[in-house]
Design a protein around this nucleic acid. Structure first.
Length: 439
RNA sequence: GCGGUCAUAGCUCAGUUGGUUAGAGCACAAGAUUGUGAAUCUUGGGGUCGCGGGUUCGAGUCCCGUUGGCCGCCCCA
């Protein structure tokens, strides 16, 4: 039968699946609205250059890219950041500050399938442009936390690891490293959690072995898990830049604490996040059990808007992926049962009764009620069964006896009670009946 | 790109050392049932056993290849 199959790594959403996805999107959207973020959208297909400019040529391996009929090199978007930088950059001078934007969109990466990772996935993206201080991070991390808590997740379920690429950069500078060496060390720090000492192989191959006292300091630094410990280590190093960073750290952590979010936050300098365009605070959300890949990630990228052709504009943002998030909700039993229940189910006697019912069905639907009825003539018994299974709160019964009396029988499917309703009062009585139940 | 593992109905799975026409439960549909609730009973539709080749008198079963799923590695914006 299945002559054609779905392309590898792609997903199909049958109604139950889409209901779940919509539920997630709806809550994310509402949460972003509560935080004062405005929604935008943009093309799925972009010039390949947009991604090369940001991440370098090697990124092409992981893109869905091709040449279009006009000879243009194009790619399905693998992420939203370059796109939103273009949008904001193009109108930066006309946009009210701070610029707080979000989107919910589908992305494509040409990669191997893995748990929590496919070739197409959706992300919630939120970004703030035009705010250089940690106030932007407070706002974004608070939004991130609420986007997860809105589903019933708590600090028992997930946490946000918080780090700082600038701090790392300045600290490594004070240790006497130049920029190429600093980048190599940050790469090693990024991998250290997973690969241990092997993480420094790349550095050794490029620059020779790392002096052991230097390596000791780096390993100690990446294991820092609190602001106090960080202040102690840096007290010895001094330096204006580092002191300024510490001030920002205090403002950020104080702000988050004041919002009551301290229990979600873990200072963790072991996080530096892969690619090099992050310029300040970076953060990643993980499940507490450590069983899943990152739930969300983000950070500051103050140079990117300018790099992509816009004005210099500070920016910071994050994204939540839908796949790992769905896995976590399932694990915690937080996926609600989303049945699309009818409001009203019509039980119809025969052909003549059907015509009478159609007039009412049309009026009820125009009034906004979800009304179902059997498309073909079906025995009464079956219709009542169908009415019950539809989840409808009331059934309207169009039988010969009722219509002869000029009434319709209104059956309350919850209370199992019935009464006759004059034909011309059906809409009003339905309204009473349903509002009475919900009220 | 690499490695492991799996593939039988819409779903979950049986299917003997290779042996007739490949089964069950659930789901779906029809009837019992022209007037009242998720029940019951009966019946039905639905399969190129992922695909292709090979071994064999004979392959869902054994061998090779291939495609796809899952898990991991590389990578992860």
């Amino acid at each position: 039968m299945a002559t054609f199959q779905t392309l590898p790594g792609f997903r199909e959403f049958y109604p139950e699946d889409l209901a779940r996805r919509n539920h997630v999107f709806r809550l994310w959207r509402r949460t972003a609205g509560a935080f004062g973020f405005a929604e935008y959208d943009a093309p799925v297909l972009e010039p390949l250059e947009l991604y090369k400019a940001k991440s370098g040529d090697e990124i092409e391996n992981q893109l869905f890219n091709f040449t279009d009929k006009g000879g243009r090199e194009v790619a399905l978007r693998p992420e939203m950041t370059p796109t939103v930088c273009r949008l904001v950059g193009a109108r930066a001078s006309a946009l009210k500050r701070p610029i707080k934007w979000f989107s919910i969109a589908e992305f494509y990466r040409y990669e191997r399938m893995q748990k929590g990772r496919g070739r197409c996935f959706s992300q919630f993206n939120a970004d703030i442009f035009g705010e250089a201080g940690p106030e932007a991070e407070i706002e974004l991390i608070a939004l991130l936390v609420q986007c997860l808590c809105g589903f019933g997740l708590t600090e028992q379920d997930f946490y946000v690891r918080l780090s700082d690429r600038n701090l790392w950069f300045y600290y490594l500078e004070t240790l006497g490293l130049d920029e190429p060496r600093i980048r190599a060390v940050l790469g090693a720090v990024d991998r250290y959690e997973k690969h241990g000492d092997d993480a420094f192989k790349g550095y050794s191959e490029q620059f020779g072995p790392l002096a052991s006292d230097l390596k000791g300091k780096i390993l100690a630094f990446l294991q820092i898990k609190s602001l106090d410990a960080l202040e102690q280590v840096l007290a010895a190093s001094g330096g204006e830049k580092l002191a300024a960073r510490l001030t920002d750290w205090r403002r950020l952590l104080d702000g988050l604490a004041a919002m009551g979010l301290a229990s979600f936050i873990q200072v963790d300098l072991g996080v530096v996040r892969g690619l090099a365009y992050y310029t300040g605070f970076v953060f990643e959300a993980f499940d507490r059990k450590g069983e899943l890949r990152a739930l969300a990630g983000g950070g500051r990228y103050d140079d990117l808007v300018e790099k992509l052709g816009g004005p210099a504009l500070p920016a910071t943002g994050f994204a939540i992926g839908d796949m790992t998030f769905a896995l976590l909700l399932e694990q915690r039993g937080l996926v609600p049962n989303l049945v699309q229940a009818a409001d009203i189910y019509c039980v119809i006697g025969g052909a003549a009764e059907r015509k009478a019912a159609f007039a009412d069905i049309q009026a009820l639907r125009a009034a906004g009620y979800r009304v179902d009825y059997p498309l073909k003539e079906v025995a009464f018994g079956k219709q009542f069964k169908a009415a019950a299974e539809s989840g409808a709160r009331i059934a309207l019964i169009y039988g010969t006896d009722e219509l002869a009396k000029g009434v319709v029988k209104l059956r309350d499917l919850t209370e199992r009670s019935e009464r006759d309703v004059p034909r011309d009062q059906v809409l009003a009585m339905v309204r009473d009946s349903i509002s009475g139940q919900t009220g």
